[in-house]
Design a protein around this nucleic acid. Structure first.
Length: 882
RNA sequence: GGGGGAUUAGCUCAGUUGGGAGAGCACAAGCUUUGCAAGCUUGGGGUCACCGGUUCGAAUCCGGUAUCCUCCA
């Protein structure tokens, strides 16, 4: 049975049992900052389990094959991958769920039937594990399934109790294990969860309790089922192999690696491990990149980079020293593309990104090797045999050079690495990150809500109206002058989907609250208000309690501008895709009243031609004045119609689709203008790189765009006026000016050189000759410090023995000295330029220094220049005569 | 989010207690030579990333910004 059939049977089986087949959520959960990667099938149902949203399925059952990546946090398998036949960074999880619907009996029975009847696994190969407190499950296994009592194993919390977090839903689990037989463990008393003879196939979680902060358990009113079956493991069992990597899932990559390297998968343990690492890591990389992640130096990008580098390092075990990982993209996509079309769609991007990342790593390695050689040479020439932990750490921390390579190269040169010191530094690094990282999130404990009136709250009218009568439901004080209000119903749009919250006012004849922002808190729409004046805010709570009836009204003009910008964002998104390619994915968006910002994934800088084309397309659509409409439909219908859905965004069963005629269809909860003509004008104001593979466009519309154009025109006229040039002449004029400037600078320099030369000649003639040596001490007139230096260097050419000291007053009114002493004078007369210059400069209110043969100094007092030079003469002549 | 590092000629990079901006390659001209990775001579090319501070004086020290590399979370 091949892997495609295994997947198909699973989904068809649960469909027949009334489950809604839910498509795998992206492996990169863009909306959940607590999670780097989707690591279990239940991730996308989290909000249903904790009661944040209602279950959208009827009956409330679901099934899926979920793409998962486990490389960080609690489940960090990265360093394990390759060592054995079943650890993976990327894997698929088959699962079925009940949201307050069926419970233990059905869940167990269906799992059993699927394995034994559909997949035809011999029942005698299967064992069960249950929590020792879970009598019900044990009964079901024994009486309903008819499993031999001997094969029902009781385990503790560690194996068979599941908790989502410190608090929240939790409950016992039951597992189904596959028995590989005695050859994997001859011990007759071997049991699941403790012997290699058994492999866990299916984990079934019964969420029946709620864990309170004090540790106690309360029964949940609605009990849930959450199951997960490791797909790769199941396929291995059905294909009769213990090794996941020997299944058809990995065969294309294993074959390709063999072809490229000339090695065989089963050659030896070392080679096998390298094969596994490469075959595994390419899957995590390709899927993560397909879902919009990119290698980088923070967050999930950094995890990706580490995965890729681990793969690249292992390729060297196969004697491959050139980028190879990217070559595995194509066999992977041949195998998985038909099931996960996002791979097919993004194939060129995936290949490009992996390849360039590998090349970058090559550079990092090369540079690291150079640095290592320097360090090693230093250690050896110092007669030592250990590379300090500090050096190893620096190589790793600053230059990204892998520790294992440092150790390998060290041992090749007979050196060791101080690992204790390295670990110590590493620990310090972790401490630093921990101490600053997390606690900024939770430091702010907000005051509790105060209930004002009873009833449903936050009925959303933002699409229908801009003002309404309402009742205040909840109240909370934020600070002395800020309060938060929740209304029975509201026309205010709460910040979401990148669109900023509305402003406006909530008022009646007793008080007036200015709404400065609107946000979601769970399902509540919270209006953040500044009270009209401070005096009023003092007793605002009493006021509200007495008069909860209000009128809520948004600021019309601002919302109107936001609408335009939001519609413009959709137009931009669509235009980007048609100009740059369909791999463009929205990576973030901000829609404000005065501008819009759109972050997107793209691996190179768009050309100015492309940007102009994008801008033109958007403006054409504006001029064609296309109608903008919204309709509520089912998610599937919208997708079938070709609507763009945001990756990682959660959608209920009913979604809102914003259509701009036939030009753009996008799922969106924001507010829009009703026809594109109202945007008037669309201008891109900025395009920049915001991280590897991520770019940002900022743009404006409507009157803001007109103002912008006007301000540019104003500056443009100013430029033309100042250059006395017509529009066509401006650039030429600038070129000419720059050329002239450069000419003048050069001429000036030549002039200065010539002046210096003349001055030097004159000074040479008037030099004081003492025996073989010349002494030149003089005040000169120069324009710059450079000219002074030039004179001295001219003199040096003609003075084979002697002392030169020149002083001058510079244009800024400061004094400068330069002194040069020939080698013989330093030795025989102990005249040092540095010392002289310092003594001299002190007189002129400054200081200086330099080498014995050449020094400079300066001072602030030009009046003292002459007396300073006199002092110099005295010192120098004294030294020469003695 | 928090560290460490980098940014100097078109390219690769030197530049040590702060004191005359350099090398190799590339480019241009000339010479030599019918030895192929040519040699020699000469020359052009720099706001030392940007902004501010300290100083008589900053590529160099300090602070900030930008971009890139890298580690930790």
């Amino acid at each position: 049975m091949n892997s495609e059939q295994v997947r198909k049977i699973f989904l068809e089986y649960f469909t027949k049992l009334g489950h809604t087949v839910v498509q795998s959520s992206p492996v990169v959960p863009l909306d959940d900052p607590t999670l780097l990667f989707t690591n279990a099938g239940m991730n996308q149902f989290k909000d249903i389990f904790v009661g944040k949203i209602a279950c959208p399925y009827e009956p409330p059952r679901a099934a899926s094959t979920q793409k998962c990546i486990r490389v960080s946090g609690k489940h960090n398998d990265l360093e394990e991958v390759g060592k054995d036949e079943y650890h993976h960074t990327f894997f698929e999880m088959l699962g079925n769920w009940s949201f307050g619907d069926y419970f233990k009996q059905e869940a167990i029975q269906w799992a059993w039937e699927l394995l034994t009847e559909q997949y035809k696994i011999p029942p005698e190969k299967l064992w069960a594990a249950v929590h020792y407190d879970d009598k019900e499950s044990a009964q079901i296994w024994k009486n309903i399934i008819g499993l031999d009592e001997r094969k029902i194993v009781r385990c503790g919390d560690e194996d068979n109790f599941w908790e989502m977090a410190e608090t929240g839903p939790c409950g016992p689990t039951t597992e189904i294990h596959y028995d590989w037989g005695e050859k994997f463990d001859p011990d007759q008393s071997a049991l699941p969860n403790s012997s290699p003879r058994f492999v866990e196939v299916w984990n079934i979680v019964f969420m029946q309790y709620f864990r309170n902060p004090d540790g106690s358990l309360d029964p949940l009113p609605a009990k849930n089922v959450d199951t997960g079956m490791g797909f790769e493991r199941l396929v291995a069992i059905l294909q009769g192999t213990r090794d996941d990597y020997s299944t058809d899932l990995f065969a294309p990559m294993i074959d390709t690696i063999a072809e490229i390297s000339g090695h065989r998968y089963d050659e030896n343990d070392r080679i096998r491990m390298a094969f596994r690492v490469l075959a595994d890591h390419i899957r995590a990389l390709a899927f993560a990149i397909a879902d919009g992640a990119l290698p980088g130096n923070t967050g999930r990008g950094y995890v990706l980079r580490r995965i890729l580098r681990r793969a690249a390092r292992f390729s060297r075990i196969l004697d491959i020293h050139k980028p190879i990982v990217w070559k595995l993209v194509s066999p992977l996509i041949d195998k998985m593309g038909p099931i996960y079309p996002e791979l097919l769609e993004k194939a060129p991007v995936i290949t490009h990104i992996i390849k360039s990342e590998e090349e970058r790593f090559g550079k990092t390695l090369d540079y690291g090797i150079e640095l290592f050689e320097e360090i090693a040479d230093r250690v050896i020439s110092a007669g030592e045999n250990e590379i300090s932990g500090e050096d190893a750490f620096k190589l790793y921390d600053t230059y990204g050079f892998p520790l294992d390579l440092t150790r390998l190269m060290a041992s090749e040169r007979g050196l060791t690495v101080n690992m204790d010191e390295f670990e110590g530094l590493m620990e310090q690094q972790r401490q630093r990150a921990r101490s600053t990282g997390t606690f900024s999130v939770e430091h702010q404990k907000k005051q509790d809500w105060i209930k004002i009136t009873d009833g449903e709250d936050s009925y959303n009218l933002c699409y229908e109206t801009e003002s309404t009568e309402a009742e205040i439901r909840l109240f909370r004080r934020l600070s002395d002058d800020k309060i938060e209000i929740v209304l029975s119903q509201t026309p205010f749009y709460a910040e979401s989907g990148g669109q900023i919250g509305d402003t406006g006012k909530i008022y009646n004849k007793f008080y007036n609250l200015n709404v400065i922002d609107t946000r979601y808190e769970g399902e509540h729409i919270v209006h953040i208000c500044a009270a009209d004046n401070a005096g009023q805010s003092m007793n605002i709570l009493e006021n509200i309690r007495a008069h909860p009836q209000v009128k809520a009204e948004i600021e019309h003009q601002r919302r109107d501008a936001i609408r335009k910008n939001h519609t413009a964002t959709h137009l931009l998104h669509r235009a980007l895709r048609s100009v740059l390619g369909t791999h463009i994915r929205q990576a973030g968006s901000m829609v404000a009243h005065d501008r819009l910002r759109f972050d997107y994934t793209h691996y190179e800088t768009p050309t100015i031609d492309q940007l102009e084309k994008i801008e033109r397309i958007v403006n054409e659509v504006i001029q064609n004045n296309l109608p903008v409409s919204t309709q509520i439909t089912s998610y599937q219908d919208a997708i079938d119609e070709g609507a763009i859905a945001l990756f990682g965004e959660k959608y209920g069963s009913k979604v809102r689709m914003v259509k701009i005629n036939d030009f753009s269809k996008e799922l969106c909860g924001g507010t829009h203008i009703d026809s594109t003509g109202k945007l008037g004008l669309f201008l891109i104001t900025d395009e920049q790189n915001i991280g590897s593979g991520m770019r940002r466009i900022e743009a404006i519309t409507g009157l803001t765009a007109v103002h912008y154009a006007q301000s540019i025109r104003r500056k443009w006229s100013e430029i033309k006026r100042k250059l006395s040039a017509t529009e066509d002449e401006v650039l030429d004029r600038l070129d000419k000016l720059f050329d002239e400037l450069s000419d003048i600078r050069k001429k000036q320099e030549k002039l200065s050189d010539a002046r210096a030369e003349t001055t030097a000649e004159n000074l040479l003639e008037s030099a004081l000759q003492i025996e073989q040596s010349k002494v030149i001490i003089s005040k000169v007139t120069v324009r710059s410090r450079d000219e002074l230096l030039k004179i001295v260097s001219d003199l040096e050419k003609n003075v084979s023995s002697g002392v030169i000291l020149l002083g001058a007053v510079l244009q800024d009114g400061k004094v400068a000295f330069v002194c040069s002493v020939t080698e013989d004078m330093i030795n025989s007369n102990n005249i040092k330029a540095g010392e002289i210059v310092r003594q001299v400069a002190t007189v002129a209110g400054g200081s200086g220094g330099g080498r014995p043969d050449f020094a400079q100094a300066g001072g602030n007092n030009p009046k003292k220049l002459d007396s300073a030079l006199k002092l110099a003469e005295k010192i120098i002549l004294h030294k020469i005569r003695n």
